[in-house]
Design a protein around this nucleic acid. Structure first.
Length: 272
DNA sequence: ATCGCCTCCTGCGCGC
DNA sequence: TGCGCGCAGGAGGCGA
């Protein structure tokens, strides 16, 4: 499920229910995630107020006065607010119960996600410290991509998906942004011009912002229904459209595999 | 430093 | 209806 817009939608959906509330109880139903959930998480957090929920890349950061929980949703993870006492279903891993009767529930069938604790500043954590800029921040632009790519022979699509280059560009939006910028995903990163990277950076920002705004429209449902965000309602130009026709030129959308990930592009519109 | 490949895991849709 | 197969929105870690 989660690309950056889904993670941000999750953050916006859960934060108002749990920020500045005290944790009364933590239940680790199944702590086997990508890395084991620390067994002492209950004693670390019970009785403590959750100060803030923030986000860095696709990591959700739950800030307490004595440290931070770093959580990732992996490929299939989700977090929702449920009422205290809601029975666990399959793949519900962890509950944080708060003193207002709300409960933050972590669900992850494939268990590629994580929930870790650090007593230090989260930006110093090994998972965080080498990350590139946030795509929606002013420090990310075409100049940045151009400068980072000069020695890189790798194809531009896996290049922009590398979190050391820029965070939050997942497999779907990498294909979508390259389509919008008219750039072939197989083109070597160092061969893309500054001008092309400026267009690409702007398209990455535009697509992520639009997607976050759409996620926001499902925010109300997010809390009380089955937790399905508006992912599938989004209009995608190329992703998953192998064999279908390009909206702009009627050419047939191509599907290839790059770095073990599916890529989609229009052979006519993406010649840059 | 850079790159390609492998891995973790479950669920689903497809073809037979 | 059942089964086997391939594929899935992430990303750390490895060897070369």
């Amino acid at each position: 499920m989660p690309e950056l817009p889904e993670v941000e939608t999750t953050r916006q959906g859960i934060a108002p229910h749990i920020e500045n509330k005290h944790i009364t109880n933590i239940t680790i139903n199944n702590g086997r995630l990508r890395w084991p959930v620390p067994a002492d998480l209950p004693e670390l957090l019970e009785g403590k107020p959750l100060l803030n929920v923030s986000r860095r890349a696709k990591y959700l950061l739950f800030e307490f006065e004595h440290g931070t929980v770093i959580a990732h949703l992996g490929m299939s993870g989700s977090m929702r607010i449920v009422s205290a006492g809601t029975v666990f279903k399959k793949h519900d891993h962890i509950d944080w119960q708060f003193d207002n009767g709300q409960c933050l529930r972590y669900h992850d069938p494939r268990r590629f996600g994580c929930m870790l604790w650090t007593p230090d500043a989260p930006e110093q954590h090994t998972l965080i410290k080498n990350l590139g800029p946030e795509p929606l921040h002013d420090t990310f632009d075409g100049k940045h991509l151009h400068q980072k790519s000069r020695t890189r022979s790798i194809a531009v699509k896996p290049f922009i998906m590398n979190s050391a280059v820029v965070v939050g560009v997942g497999n779907i939006y990498a294909s979508e942004a390259l389509y919008a910028a008219g750039i072939r995903p197989t083109r070597s990163a160092k061969c893309i011009t500054l001008q092309q990277y400026c267009v690409l950076a702007e398209e990455i920002k535009r697509i992520l912002e639009k997607s976050i705004a759409q996620g926001g429209t499902t925010l109300r449902d997010f809390v009380n229904s089955d937790g399905q965000p508006g992912y599938f309602a989004q209009k995608l130009s190329v992703y998953g459209r192998k064999g279908e026709t390009c909206n702009a030129c009627n050419s047939t959308i191509k599907h290839i595999v790059q770095a073990q990930r599916a890529s989609y592009y229009c052979p006519t519109c993406q010649t840059g």
